[in-house]
Amino acid sequence: MQIGRMIRRAIRMVIPPALFIGLTAYFGWNVMQGDHGLQSYKAQLQLLAEARAAQQDAMAEQQVWVRRVRGLKESALDSDTLDERARAMLNLSRPDELVVPYGAHEHLY
Results as ranks from 00 to 15, higher is better:
2 Q>F: 13
3 I>R: 11
3 I>A: 10
4 G>I: 12
7 I>V: 08
8 R>C: 11
10 A>D: 07
11 I>D: 06
12 R>A: 15
12 R>T: 14
12 R>D: 15
13 M>Y: 12
13 M>G: 14
13 M>C: 11
13 M>E: 15
14 V>E: 11
15 I>E: 06
16 P>C: 00
16 P>E: 01
17 P>S: 01
18 A>K: 09
18 A>L: 15
19 L>N: 10
20 F>S: 14
20 F>M: 15
22 G>L: 03
22 G>T: 03
23 L>V: 03
23 L>T: 02
24 T>G: 05
24 T>I: 05
24 T>P: 00
25 A>H: 02
26 Y>N: 05
26 Y>Q: 04
26 Y>R: 03
27 F>R: 00
28 G>R: 00
28 G>F: 00
28 G>N: 01
28 G>P: 01
29 W>Y: 14
29 W>L: 07
29 W>F: 06
29 W>M: 04
30 N>C: 05
30 N>M: 11
31 V>D: 10
32 M>G: 07
34 G>F: 01
34 G>M: 00
35 D>Q: 07
35 D>P: 09
36 H>N: 12
36 H>P: 04
37 G>Y: 01
37 G>R: 00
38 L>E: 09
39 Q>D: 10
40 S>E: 05
40 S>V: 03
41 Y>V: 08
42 K>H: 08
43 A>R: 12
44 Q>E: 11
45 L>G: 07
46 Q>E: 15
46 Q>S: 14
47 L>H: 13
48 L>Q: 14
49 A>L: 04
49 A>P: 02
49 A>E: 05
50 E>Q: 13
51 A>Y: 06
51 A>F: 06
54 A>W: 05
55 Q>A: 10
55 Q>L: 10
55 Q>G: 09
56 Q>K: 14
56 Q>V: 13
56 Q>T: 13
57 D>H: 14
58 A>Y: 05
58 A>C: 03
59 M>Q: 10
59 M>S: 07
60 A>S: 08
63 Q>M: 09
66 V>C: 05
66 V>Q: 13
69 V>I: 15
69 V>D: 08
69 V>A: 14
69 V>F: 14
70 R>M: 09
70 R>D: 08
71 G>D: 04
73 K>I: 10
74 E>Y: 13
74 E>I: 14
78 D>V: 02
80 D>F: 10
81 T>M: 14
81 T>P: 04
81 T>Q: 13
82 L>G: 02
83 D>V: 11
86 A>H: 08
87 R>W: 01
87 R>V: 02
87 R>Y: 00
89 M>E: 10
90 L>C: 02
90 L>Y: 01
90 L>E: 00
92 L>E: 03
93 S>E: 03
93 S>A: 11
93 S>F: 03
95 P>V: 05
95 P>L: 03
97 E>P: 02
97 E>R: 02
99 V>Y: 00
99 V>T: 01
100 V>C: 01
100 V>I: 04
100 V>W: 00
100 V>T: 00
100 V>A: 01
101 P>S: 08
101 P>W: 04
102 Y>N: 11
103 G>Y: 02
105 H>L: 13
105 H>V: 10
105 H>D: 15
105 H>T: 14
106 E>G: 04
106 E>R: 06
107 H>N: 15
108 L>K: 07
108 L>Y: 07
108 L>G: 08
109 Y>T: 15
109 Y>F: 11
